[in-house]
Deep mutational scan, measured.
Amino acid sequence: QIFVKTLTGKTITLEVEPSDTIENVKAKIQDKEGIPPDQQRLIFAGKQLEDGRTLSDYNIQKESTLHLVL
């Protein structure tokens, strides 16, 4: 699982696999929060994550925290 922290300070927990794409993660966030993926920007280690890449591409491991910017 990974954590996604929103600007409001809320933390969302997501069940993911390293092979999941960023697009996939955004879809999971939409399921939980109702935020359309095209409004979501995910930041990890100061980098904006691209939809077509996977979590493992960015070396995002379990218990990692991503930041969600709208």
Rank of each mutant, 00 (worst) to 15 (best):
Q40D: 01
A27G: 10
E50Q: 09
T54F: 07
F3G: 02
V25Y: 02
A27T: 11
T8M: 11
E33Y: 09
V16D: 00
D20A: 07
L70A: 09
S64H: 08
T21R: 08
I35V: 08
V4A: 03
D20R: 02
D51Y: 05
A27W: 13
L49P: 01
G52A: 10
K62Y: 15
L68P: 00
V4S: 01
K47T: 13
Q39H: 11
K5Y: 08
F3H: 09
K5H: 10
T8C: 15
Q30E: 10
L7I: 14
R41I: 14
I22W: 02
E15H: 12
S64E: 08
K32F: 08
E15A: 11
S56G: 10
L49H: 00
I60S: 01
P18Q: 08
T8G: 11
Q61R: 09
E23N: 09
L7W: 15
T65E: 07
Q48I: 13
K5F: 07
G9D: 05
L42K: 00
K47E: 12
G46W: 05
G46C: 10
I22S: 02
V16I: 09
K47D: 07
T6W: 15
Q30M: 13
N24Q: 14
V4Y: 02
L42F: 04
L49F: 02
G46T: 04
P36L: 07
I22K: 00
G34F: 04
A27L: 14
L7S: 14
Y58G: 01
N24E: 12
S64F: 09
F44G: 02
Q61Y: 09
K47Q: 14
Q61D: 09
L49Y: 01
V4E: 01
S19R: 07
T21F: 08
E17A: 09
T65V: 14
L68T: 02
K32V: 11
F44K: 03
D20T: 09
Q1C: 15
D31W: 09
V25K: 00
D20P: 01
I2L: 08
G52F: 12
D51I: 05
E17P: 03
S64K: 04
Q48P: 11
A45R: 14
E17D: 12
Q48C: 15
Q39L: 10
A45W: 09
H67W: 12
D31H: 12
Q39M: 12
T65F: 08
K28H: 05
G34Q: 06
Q40C: 09
I43W: 15
E50L: 09
D31S: 12
T8S: 15
N59W: 05
F3R: 06
I43D: 04
T11W: 08
V25I: 13
L55W: 03
G9R: 04
P18D: 10
L55S: 01
L68H: 01
K28A: 07
K32C: 11
S19I: 07
G34P: 02
K28C: 05
I43R: 06
T8R: 10
Q40L: 06
I29M: 03
T13R: 07
R41A: 08
L66C: 01
K47C: 12
R53M: 12
L14C: 04
E17T: 10
D38C: 15
D51E: 09
T11A: 05
I12W: 06
K32I: 13
A45I: 06
K62P: 15
L66Y: 02
E15D: 13
E50A: 08
E23Y: 15
T54G: 03
K28G: 03
G52E: 10
V16S: 04
I35H: 08
S64Y: 09
V69K: 08
R41G: 06
K5M: 13
E33A: 11
A27V: 12
E33I: 14
I2Y: 05
I43Q: 07
G46V: 02
K28P: 00
K10A: 08
P18K: 06
K32H: 09
F3A: 04
K62C: 10
R41Y: 11
T11F: 09
L7P: 14
T8D: 14
I2S: 01
F44R: 02
E33Q: 06
K5N: 06
L66K: 01
T54W: 04
Q1I: 15
K47V: 15
P36N: 07
T65I: 15
K10V: 09
E50N: 07
Q30T: 10
T13H: 07
K5S: 08
